[in-house]
Amino acid sequence: MLAKRIIPCLDIKDGRTVKGINFVDLKDAGDPVELAKAYAEQGADELIFLDITATHEKRKTLLELVEKVAQVLNIPFTVGGGISSCEDVAQILKAGADKIAINSSAVRRPELITELANRFGSQCVVLAVDARETEDAWEVYLNGGRIPTGIKLFDWLKEAERRGAGEILFTSMNHDGTKNGFANKALAEISEMLSIPLIASGGAGNMQHFADAFAKGKADAALAASVFHYKEIEIPKLKNYLKSESIPVRL
């Protein structure tokens, strides 16, 4: 049976992980390579690295990091942040990443999705989207949820799928950081509307929230950062819990 995936997300700045990370057993908790290895050993199904520096001059640092991660990691990983051209993607994939995630650059120029899917295959194109629910609808936001676009979320996701996105990473700005659970109602609608895999993001606070994202939200994967980094939720425990809730996981 196809397993539901658990995906820790690492924020990277200048080649180091940011946000306090509480891994006492690591030599250097800011080293993304050490962390990536630790997560893989704990049973993470995939990893996502988001480069929040993303300035042009720092790209070289990112590529070096991708290469080091690829050397040690035996599970798939995605790299996102500041990607806006085929050339960017070619470099990141060549360094050893399995997939790339695009967000704002695709909203600004939707053709980018088509270009990337045609050149590298849909399987490596993850369309990340930050959205906020207002009274009447879900709206797409840019720059980590700071800039409203007026674009309706569901329209945008349908277009992304049509253009060849291979997977959707949906972050609800209403839920992100609250630790009150994922946006299950919206997730379920998106999952049923699309025929490509859906990663839930934003709101993880306890193990039940993950079970809900899969059972109620019909997500194919769930992403979280701080609950894993601060060891509020440990991945082996989470997966055993999900299994006890009859959710298929890789143990």
């Binding site: 049976m1 196809l2 397993a3 995936r5 199904d45 599970i75 798939p76 849909s122 399987q123 291979g166 997977e167 699309l194 025929s195 490509i196 895999p197 194919d220 994967a221 890789r250």
Partner: peptide
């Protein structure tokens, strides 16, 4: 169902040397 088939799934009925020591229903990507 959703296509691509993406993620970890189980293999079974393994034959041949490639699967020496690999348990039935092991997950691969």
């Amino acid at each position: 169902d959703k296509v691509p088939h993406m993620g970890w799934n189980q293999i079974r009925q393994q034959k041949a040397e490639l699967f020496n020591g690999i348990k039935e229903n092991s997950f691969v990507y």
